[in-house]
Design a protein around this nucleic acid. Sequence first.
DNA 1: CACCTTGTTGTACGATCGTTCAACAAGAAA
DNA 2: TTTCTTGTTGAACGATCGTACAACAAGGTG
Lengths: 194, 194
Amino acid sequence: MRKRELIEAGIRCLGNGGISAFTIDNICREAQVSRGLINHHFRTKEDLLLQIYAAMTAHLVESFPSEVAEHVLRHVIDSNFDASTFRRSNLRAWLTVWGEIATNAELRVLHEQRYQNYKARIARALAAFVRRDDPGFEAESLARQLIAMIDGLWLEYCLHAEDFSLEDARHDCYRLLHSQGVALRVPGSGDRGD
Amino acid sequence: MRKRELIEAGIRCLGNGGISAFTIDNICREAQVSRGLINHHFRTKEDLLLQIYAAMTAHLVESFPSEVAEHVLRHVIDSNFDASTFRRSNLRAWLTVWGEIATNAELRVLHEQRYQNYKARIARALAAFVRRDDPGFEAESLARQLIAMIDGLWLEYCLHAEDFSLEDARHDCYRLLHSQGVALRVPGSGDRGD
DNA sequence: CACCTTGTTGTACGATCGTTCAACAAGAAA
DNA sequence: TTTCTTGTTGAACGATCGTACAACAAGGTG
């Protein structure tokens, strides 16, 4: 499908050059189609950006490989720090869409939905995993901290890749959960191909 | 000085509309000067962006109000979460320059300097504050986590301001330090006008 | 006075932007 | 075959981009 190719070409443009490289000319050249095709498949360029964001966040909405709380938490952390997603070009695409949210109402609505869904799923897994006799435990708060830590480490790692490893970042997240009573077992450093 | 006005106008443009709003026309209109003035005071637009970044990070380089470890750590956290800096328009300016770092070599060099200096100062304060008889304590690692948590909470707060308060974010940072052996006293919720 | 520097203005240039649109190829429906 | 829909192309449009540059005002120095 040409639509899919255009969306993925758009993501590559965003990742390589930010919103400045997100031009009709660039995207069509990247997708190796002619200039007029975008406006045939997408009403406007903003429409393309919206569908790009939907594609970038699709994995947050699709069902996880398992609904077991422990697996959900591990999947959230490990999938964020695997080598294929943890790259500078991915970061720039995210930085761009996050910035555009401020001035694009449709994008903001979609992002809000995705984020709330994501956070709620994490909070649910945290609440299910922590032992019941801990009264002070706040799943919502910890979910927010985990998301912040993941995004913050992403940012730091992509801007200074030489300072620490992907494994370090992953362990920081497990440590955060541990320190607040979520005794999640940290898996080995090998690839877990799920 | 006109140079200063142009720099601050540029920051406002970046904050409001990202790199797309960072145009000669926009900046000059914002600064209420004529179109040709930017290229008189700045060699090129990239040069202006570089000096804007220097201005945005000046407070990270200037000496802190105190060199006492406890004060340094509190200042890092509290100054990041006070109401005047913790705003969505500030976030977008940061998102933009972080994105530009990928394709602007001069900007990357400057950012690297500032970041290393900032992280080293935090690590030094952490090492000085933690008690000496804790062998497993890694100041560098915790400094990285603290910076990640601050930036991540910034991101989350600015994109979903209704989900949690500024005070919540601040407490999350103090909790992170506490959980790893840095028994920093969390100050009251009132303004600390230092 | 003449001369030079500095700050400031506004115009002009070629390049590139997003969108519109006429044209055409190919396959399905009649 | 004719007709219609769909996918695709490339040219054209006005708008806006960053930069270069001529022009001028003001002040210091000879």
